[in-house]
Nucleic acid binder design. Structure first.
Length: 944
RNA sequence: GCGCCAGUAGCUCAGCUGGCUAGAGCACACCCCUGAUAAGGGUGAGGUCGAUGGUUCGAGUCCAUUCUGGCGCACCA
């Protein structure tokens, strides 16, 4: 045995500065800092200044707390859109936004004020001053979280105009919102109407759900008979003849609401019984009869007849103590759990009742005033009485008049004002609404009709099922109540006149908007009506009331529902900042069908007649690995900081890019491990390509592309160029359809299979062993270079940091900005190799057959494929054109084709000499002048 | 309770208008390589397609019912 010479120094072994280990947690912040100091966002904007803009609009997250994994998903998806659009050569001015007003912040601020004892001091201030004090705290709170969330979102490597974000509390934004409102007013969509709200008597204010605390409370629970008006009609319904008139028995735990009773609701599908109970004739649900009889302690109960609830509808009854007749109505919310199956309905005192009242055309009657006392419309013995005292009075009255069937004490949980800890009541108050069924003044169409038309005809939904979901919601939605009785928000600029009527016209709102544009909505609390209306001219306002006296006006204090503000962003951001309208895309979680999507549609359609977005993309919600929803209380919530620290933003982004975002998305730290491994696979593949380019000539991109596309179709390089072109068009098509998962899989598959498993393995020998500047090696380097050019661009939307890191390793530190590049478009560049050659499928099939055969040959002792030669059957000659490349492709030393063979045969080459340099036994190996055993090719390379 | 959606190998997902022994990647097992090396390659095992019933010559694929989970709405006088 001659000792083998060490030829390693003569090889062109790979070299690169692109490290195998990404070290993302440290490297990403550095990249981010570089982007910020170099103003990458500005540079990209400049590069795309004249390009066709893609109008993409950010839905504002709420400025509260730390970002969670839901934000991560949402913001990364959006960023993938932004960057993929840029890579297509379009411009995209993406402005991040925040929703600032509203109860969650005010609630937290108030809690803080109560705890610190400052709240009591506030109560001593005048209304305007007190509200301003609260608003200042709230604004500071919102500002703080906007800042921290902005930092967190940028840490996700997202690209947006973070220097000029929008907040719903910015004066210009507020003015834009008011202008939307003015236009809706002008179109006739806005009106004022009674609606029941939770009302705190102690604080004389409406409360939101979040301001309620539920505590146990004991109330009288009473069963009351309401006597039917027409005995004959009742008899007819039940098919009997009675000697006296029956009564409808209802149950309630709020006797004080009985004066406002305007209907009794029954379930249309339930059976109701006409019964004789201790001599009295009464009607209750058949199913509830035994229970009611038992509670009432009735001795003799006899059912005379039964009828369906729907048959009772329309029957009338006398109110037991108010002078009026009302009727039986149907409602499917009537249940058979408590009570009598007949539900006392007071549209002014309950939400269900209110809906029923609206549907039945009943008055929204509320005889209770803000201080909890009855007004003059009730019987004299109740007038001026507090509702809590009225409970006992009503019970006593009914007992005396013989309408009370039974009374007991009932303990239940009841809402209380969280601040005063006093029980609240449900009371109808005047609220502002946007009507969805009112015809607009411009085209006579209602908002609902316009929205349905947009949903059915002009919006593209991704995924498709968004269409039916949105449609269902538009069909069913009630009028939009846009007023709230809070301090932290944009005031609805209405005034009360001396006559007590309300003054607010499109022109007056615009005047206030002008004021707000410069001074902010605080102006409403700091200025007088005359100052607010400084630019208002009643004489040119066709809607101005004739008796208008500006000096006599007083400000009203309702604020807008925050959804109205967010729903005006298409105006306050897209139009005011001249970004473009309508937007090409809105992208949010599927909960926003009810929220931002719909509440942007309605104002925009009402004001402009145009839907604010062309395409609607929705993603599902994150759930844990068992499919359960995430919540802090369940302890299954993932911390974004932990993900960033353990895996880095790039791995998180890579995970997002591969997720099936329609429907629920399971998330778990383990999934990031998986994503991390696949990220590393992609990274290493890039690294291999880069490492073999260290000595490539300094081709321009065009030179490299020209050279790469010149590869012969029958070469491995030619094959790869076809695959590369196919990848590029497939990925771009999928990006354009927002099918990021398809892009992700295509790229991964290309790196893992096409490159790592096939191409890199096949081409290694020539890269390492051929003479450095041999045409064959340079050809491969050109292809590797183009593959890098393509991959960096395709990966940039998913992995901006890694793609740029690779890009700079490829192009050097003076490389042009990756994010200002556009795709190569190999298919358009043309050349025979820029398209997939179908003849290659036979080659690839043969290649896997060889793999299997080699596996079998291991039992013969042929462990190393380079110790083997294979004979491939080629009856049709389909492999012949590729003969030169087959050995490299299969990783063996020799391949011969045999037209007559039927199976792959492996022969043992271990008795033949092995090249000391390339380790191949290609039949040309012999001792050379330097004493080494070398093949012809290697001898040439070494120069011996 | 109502509307929308999902339920296919351990995991993430393909399976279009119903049609050969249900596919991929990861993980796993075994093996190779040691000149991509805290890398790379090969082979293989693994599924009663949530359940039940139906339509059909034939269903993961259509229909009905049901279970589980998610989002939104409603939630009781």
């Amino acid at each position: 045995m001659s000792e083998t010479r060490d030829y390693k120094p003569t090889l062109n072994l790979p070299k690169t500065s692109f490290p195998m280990k990404a070290n993302l947690a440290q490297a990403e912040p550095a990249t981010l800092a570089r982007w910020q100091s170099a103003d990458i966002a500005g540079a990209i904007a400049t590069a795309r200044k004249t390009a066709t803009p893609f109008v993409f609009h950010d839905g504002p997250p709420y400025a509260n707390g730390s970002i969670h994994v839901g934000h991560l998903l949402n913001k990364v998806l959006k960023d993938i859109v932004v960057r993929s659009v840029l890579m297509e050569g379009r411009g995209c001015h993406y402005v991040p936004g925040w929703d600032c007003h509203g109860l969650p912040i005010e609630h937290r601020v108030m809690t803080g004020l109560v705890e610190s004892g400052k709240a009591a001091k506030l109560d001593t201030l005048s209304d305007d001053h007190r509200r301003m004090a609260i608003r200042r705290e709230c604004a500071a709170y919102a500002t703080k979280f906007i800042k921290s969330q902005s930092v967190q979102m940028q840490r996700l490597l997202t690209l947006a105009d973070y220097a000029n974000p929008y907040f719903t509390m910015q004066p210009q934004y507020e003015a834009g919102t008011l202008e939307v409102f003015a236009a809706l007013l002008e179109q006739g969509f806005v009106f004022r109407q009674l609606k029941p709200v939770h009302w705190s008597i102690a604080n004389q204010t409406a409360l939101a759900e979040a301001e309620l605390e539920y505590e146990d409370r004991v109330d009288p629970s009473i069963y009351v008979d309401f006597e039917a008006v027409d005995r004959a009609k009742v008899d007819a319904v039940f098919g009997v003849e009675c000697a006296c008139t029956a009564s409808f028995m209802i149950w309630t735990t709020t006797p004080w609401t009985l004066p406002a009773n305007l209907a009794i609701a029954v379930h249309p599908a339930q059976q109701y019984a006409l019964v004789e109970m201790d001599g009295a004739l009464t009607i209750v649900a058949a199913e509830m009869l035994d229970k009611v009889a038992k509670i009432a302690g009735a001795a003799a109960v006899r059912t005379l007849a039964t009828a369906r609830g729907s048959d009772l509808v329309g029957l009338e009854y006398h109110h037991p103590f108010c002078d009026r007749k009302s009727r039986i109505v149907a409602a499917d919310y009537v249940t058979m759990e408590d009570g009598t199956g007949l539900v006392h309905t007071a549209p002014g005192h309950g939400d269900d009742d209110y809906r029923t009242g609206l549907r039945e055309g009943l008055e929204i009657y509320c005889p209770v005033q803000g201080d909890g006392t009855f007004d003059g419309t009730v019987p004299e013995w109740l007038r001026g009485k507090l509702v809590w005292d009225a409970n006992g009075l009503v019970v006593e009255y009914l007992r005396t008049s013989g309408h009370l069937v039974h009374e007991l004490k009932f303990s239940h949980s009841y809402p209380h004002d969280w601040r005063s800890r006093t029980p609240v009541i449900f009371r109808a108050t005047e609220q502002w609404f946007i009507g969805v069924d009112r015809p607009g003044n411009r085209g006579g169409q209602s908002l609902r009709a316009m929205a349905m038309d947009a949903v059915n005809n002009s919006i593209k939904f991704v995924p498709q099922w968004g269409h039916s979901r949105m449609k269902g919601m538009i069909e069913n939605r009630p009028d939009w109540c846009i007023s709230r009785q809070r301090a932290w928000g944009l005031p609805i600029p209405a005034f009360r006149m001396a006559t007590d009527s309300v003054f607010m016209t499109a022109a007056s709102v615009r005047a206030v908007a002008e004021c707000v544009r410069t001074k902010g909505s605080d102006a409403w609390f700091t200025l007088s009506p005359a100052e607010l209306l400084a630019t208002y001219d009643a004489s040119s306002d066709p809607d101005a009331p004739t008796d208008l006296a500006i000096d006599a006006l007083t400000k009203m204090y309702d604020i807008f529902d925050v959804w109205f503000e967010a729903g005006s962003s298409w105006n306050s951001v897209l139009r005011q900042r001249a970004i473009g309208f309508p937007a090409d895309l809105y992208l949010e979680g599927s909960d926003q069908h009810r929220g931002w999507f719909q509440l942007s549609m309605l104002p925009a359609l009402g004001v402009t007649g145009t839907n604010p977005f062309r395409t609607l993309l929705t993603h599902g919600f994150l759930v844990d690995k068992d499919g359960k929803k995430m919540s802090k209380s369940a302890g299954n919530a993932l911390d974004v900081d932990v993900i960033l620290k353990d895996f880095g933003a790039e791995v998180a982004r890579w995970w997002v890019s591969g997720v099936a975002y329609d429907g629920d998305i399971r998330i778990d730290l383990d999934y990031f491990k998986v994503a991390g491994e696949s990220y590393r696979k992609v990274r290493n593949t890039l690294r291999f390509l880069l490492s073999n380019l260290y000595d490539a000539p300094p081709w321009t991109q065009e030179e490299a592309t020209a050279r790469a596309t010149a590869a012969t179709p029958e070469s491995i390089d030619g094959w790869l160029m076809g695959e590369l072109a196919a990848l590029e068009s497939e990925a771009r098509a999928a990006y354009n359809e927002y099918d990021f998962r398809r892009v992700h899989l295509a790229i991964f598959n290309f790196c893992n299979e096409t490159l790592s498993s096939v191409y890199c393995a096949a081409v290694k020998d020539r890269l390492y062993c051929d003479t450095a500047d041999s045409p064959r090696r340079r050809q491969t380097q050109a292809v590797a270079r183009v593959a890098m050019e393509v991959l960096c661009r395709l990966l940039a939307p998913f992995l901006p940091h890694t793609a740029e890191e690779a890009w700079m390793a490829l192009r050097g530190s003076d490389a042009p900005l990756l994010f200002a590049q556009t795709h190569l478009d190999l298919a358009a560049i043309g050349g025979v190799t820029a398209v997939r050659d179908p003849r290659w499928s036979a080659v690839m099939t043969a290649r896997s057959a060889v793999s299997k055969a080699l596996e079998g040959a291991k039992s013969l002792g042929i462990d190393n494929p380079l110790d083997a030669a294979v004979t491939l059957p080629d009856p049709r000659g389909s492999l012949a054109p590729f003969e030169k490349e087959l050995a490299d492709l299969c990783g063996v030393s020799q391949v011969t084709l045999d037209a007559k063979a039927t199976i792959v045969t492996v022969s043992d080459l271990r008795s033949q000499p092995r090249c000391d340099r390339s380790w191949r036994r290609d039949g040309t190996v012999r001792q050379r002048s330097d004493g080494g055993m070398l093949s012809d090719r290697d001898a040439l390379s070494v120069g011996v």
